[in-house]
Design a protein around this nucleic acid. Structure first.
Lengths: 332, 332
DNA sequence: CTGAAAGCGCTAACAC
DNA sequence: GTGTTAGCGCTTTCAG
């Protein structure tokens, strides 16, 4: 910047004004400065800028997910990045790999960079550590999962209600032995989904059999192995419910076509499988867009009490969830 | 930091030393400082730190993709972030949406933040604008696509050879009218894939019919519509080749099961479709991991001439690509 | 309309 | 072991 000022024969202050498009610089002066900028290939240093600016905004947000490679989270990341770009902010990305300690470490590097806010898919575990970030002024919005014990906005779906409805749907088609295949119930979303599963069974007077409930599955292969084991057990399930898209892929790799199947999360090929897959669909782009808008509202001064936004889900029957079970009205 | 120093009764320099774990601070002093840090909830400001440090490294890299929601690119992002974390760096993410101008804008905000390097899936168009970033010291590694006219490392696969082999495979199964469904050929990868397609046809003495080649498809629905049109034409293809995973999903939504099909990129459900889908598989995680390692080597002083690393692909026959065509050896 | 001085929070280099 | 001084590249404030 000094070099540019020297080249243009002005002070650094004038360079600063021109570079930032501030009004109040004589056009000929501005032209000289611009020529010098081009000649020297000068680019403003936004790191130094952030240090001095009085609004103290870094124009950067942090995005913390389990794993960007997960299609649900990739959609969230993409939508969040879109909104951030519209709002003139950059996005730092981090993956927790479902480990709160790793999540905390990464978030600390975010806050050390003075991000304005955080969009967070919280891992299982206590998020009390985020209070110091909040005290420091970092705004936080959770997506897909609430963070119990944290006073922050959240954008989620009614996981409990959606799964409850889905299990009722399977029961209505004659199933009694319905397997549940999910990730750790300590993760808020999976806790809710499992609660919905149990609530539906209970409402229908069916004893929940822990032998056909599998928690802590983190990958397709995990789910595939779990289902293989369940199917070779003495009393195999007649229907399987998968907790999310990644697990659904694993289940579908090994599931015989005569077992009913229903999954959380819709996916492009669901209608093309044999049978077509019945799903509970949600809209990750809408979730993330809503969360990002909420975050920027907070960053720009919205101090109303934390909100929890609940977005809709939709049960899409396609065939796999309507395979009749042994107790179906018109026999098997 | 001043507050911490006052609280602990030391100078800011001592606080700096303790916070950075530098040797040469008496344990009791360090303990007092640490107590003050905790009491005041102090966290080092890495923005200010970066400004002063002499190595001038921001410990941040930029990751520029078309669209994080694309499964291939999500895998790249995830792997790149993993390596960055191991190397103590953060990742800024940006999406070009296949628009070089947007790509340039985002990259300029990256370099204004003084990222140490860039992992880039270049959009179609000239990347000469990156030369000033390189002159400024930003290291650049391309993944999946080369950036013509740019002197940078690249990690890619042999798209030409892989598609040529795949088209020979279809021809060997009796196909002559093979449709090609891809994105803009100005994107390096799709240019290569299309070249491979034409080279195989030519090698077999088959006239390429432009009526069954569709370029510039950017989404599943785009591909679905293109294929629908192709199939209702007077001389429909007997086989379809999809340029990537996203397009494959679109094609599969509308393709009758008696038309042969082959796609670039493997996907979890490929074996479960009817018929199972024959693919050219590549490993996005390996591509991105290799690119990230290359980038960090550059950042840490590797000044050898730019390299292009070529990773393997694999043709995985599963059924859809082996449906016999009208010219199959043993009749249809 | 333009410039000089001060300082953002931190660390390099050198004292003591 | 610890402190002092200077300055990273920029913007704020205030003076002309």
């Amino acid at each position: 910047m000094k070099d540019v000022a020297a080249e243009a024969g002005v002070s650094v202050m004038t360079v600063s004004r021109v570079v930032n498009g501030d009004a109040g610089v004589a056009p000929p002066t501005a032209a000289r400065v611009e020529a010098a900028v081009r000649k020297l290939g000068y680019q403003r240093d936004d790191v130094a800028r952030q240090l001095r600016r009085t609004d103290q905004l870094s124009q950067t947000i942090g995005l913390m997910v389990d794993n960007v490679a997960d299609p649900f989270m990739a959609a969230v990341a993409s939508a969040a990045e879109d909104v951030a770009r519209q709002r003139g902010s950059m996005v730092l990305i981090g993956s927790s790999r479902a480990d709160v300690r790793r999540e905390q470490e990464v978030i600390e590097t975010f806050t050390a960079r003075r991000v304005d806010g955080l969009i967070l898919i919280p891992a299982a575990g206590s998020h009390r550590f985020l209070r110091s970030a909040q005290a420091q002024g970092t705004k936080i919005v959770c997506v897909d999962r609430a963070a119990p014990g944290l006073d922050a906005d959240a954008v989620v779906v009614d996981n409990f209600g959606a799964v409850k409805e889905a299990v009722h749907h399977l029961i209505a088609h004659g199933h009694r032995r319905i397997a549940y295949v999910g990730d750790k119930p300590e993760i808020w979303t999976f806790g809710e989904r499992h609660r919905g599963y149990r609530a539906a069974l209970e409402a229908e007077g069916i004893d929940a059999d822990p032998a056909i409930v599998r928690h802590g599955l983190r990958s397709g292969p995990d789910a595939a192995q779990a289902v293989t084991e369940l199917l070779s057990s003495p009393e195999p399930p007649t229907a399987v419910l998968a907790g999310n898209e990644v697990l659904a892929f694993g289940v579908l790799a090994v599931l015989p076509p005569d077992i009913a199947f229903l999954s959380f999360d819709d996916f492009a090929l669901a209608p093309r499988l044999t049978p077509p897959v019945t799903v509970i669909a949600q809209d990750p782009v809408a979730l993330a867009t809503s969360a990002a808008h909420l975050l920027f509202a907070r960053i720009h001064g919205d101090t109303s009490p934390p909100r929890t936004v609940v977005m809709p889900t939709e049960l899409i029957p396609r065939g796999s969830g309507e395979i009749p079970g042994p107790h179906a009205p018109h026999g098997r």
